[in-house]
């Protein structure tokens, strides 16, 4: 039972971690809590279902299921990437030098706009992930059942998180991102195009959220226009838990949150599933206000 609960927790935790990365990266650079980030994840989930329905229609899964999946993920992240960049351009860039509260309100506004836009465009009913494309099979380790979808979610998340770490640590753009996060004005004076770096940050965050959306729609098989809200709150909690603005912190926070939920629900009571996660958040913030891995004291919103 313990192993199964850990698997349950890791699966959902890695999804939280992917979304939390988007919150934390944007916060690191702009000190903005991008409340519309959860909606980007929701759009990713919708794009996944739309793409896969299209591929089933043209009969692609009969040729190769792996190719279908790769193309579905690609389609979803291209669209969410585009949404992320547009979001930054439309809602945040014009307010770059405005008071911090204006940009926060703008973020909340965009969240509502995107939610209602998807509701109007896609209908208010739940969308169901087609059963035709089932990644059948499971691993059974000592009474714990791990479906291949879960394996895929965990493997892909680890892959993307290590890819991101490498990107931030080793590449020139990654270095520029870190510099911008430390001091945007100084980075600009040293010849870094900070506007471009901000766009890249939004792009990466949205890609991660989009991929998370596709994974969750495959896992639960059900998607709706308000799913971004709860997921967004949970992922934001994960980011704060790990220390907002800190990239490894977001990963740790996400996975920890997933594990806490699963173990709390499994061993204590599922009626208070959400309570455990938030109770731990409160405790961590009392004893370590910057979060588990955070160093900077934030005096912002």
């Amino acid at each position: 039972m313990l192993l199964q609960q850990i698997i349950n927790g890791l699966t959902i935790g890695s999804v939280y971690a992917l979304i939390a990365l988007g919150y934390t990266m944007v916060y690191g650079i702009l000190q903005l809590i991008n409340f519309a980030h959860g909606e980007i994840y929701m759009i990713g989930a919708y794009m996944g279902i739309i793409a896969i329905t299209f591929f089933i229609y043209i009969g692609l899964p009969d040729i190769s299921i792996a190719l279908t999946l790769v193309l579905t993920f690609l389609a979803a992240i291209i669209f969410t990437g585009a949404y992320g960049i547009t979001l930054e351009r439309v809602a945040y860039r014009p307010l770059r030098n405005a008071p911090r509260l204006s940009i926060l309100i703008s973020a909340i506004g965009m969240s509502i706009v995107l939610q209602n836009y998807v509701m109007l465009a896609q209908g208010a009913r739940d969308k169901i992930f087609p059963h035709e494309l089932k990644i059948g099979g499971e691993l059974i380790i000592a009474d714990a059942h791990i479906t291949y979808t879960q394996v895929l979610i965990m493997a892909l998340s680890v892959l993307m998180m290590s890819g991101l770490t490498w990107f931030i640590k080793k590449t020139k753009v990654g270095m520029a991102m870190r510099a911008t996060a430390q001091d945007r004005r100084m980075a600009g004076l040293l010849g870094i195009n900070t506007d471009r770096i901000i766009v890249i940050t939004f792009l990466i965050g949205s890609i991660l959220a989009g991929a998370a959306g596709v994974m969750i729609s495959m896992y639960y098989g059900i998607v709706n226009f308000y799913m971004g809200y709860t997921a967004g709150i949970k992922a934001f909690t994960a980011a704060v838990l790990g220390g907002i603005g800190n990239i490894p912190g977001a990963m740790l926070g996400g996975i920890l949150l997933g594990l806490l939920e699963a173990l709390g629900a499994g061993y204590i009571s599922s009626e208070y599933k959400d309570v455990f996660a938030f109770a731990v958040l409160v405790l961590v913030l009392i004893f370590k206000p910057t979060g588990l891995l955070g160093e900077r004291i934030s005096d912002k919103v």
Partner: peptide
């Protein structure tokens, strides 16, 4: 005997408990 939250989508933790 357990309660779950309406609107939640992840019931694996409570079902793991049920299974045991």
């Amino acid at each position: 005997s357990e309660g779950v939250t309406q609107g939640d989508q992840d019931f694996k933790p409570v079902l793991t408990k049920v299974k045991s």
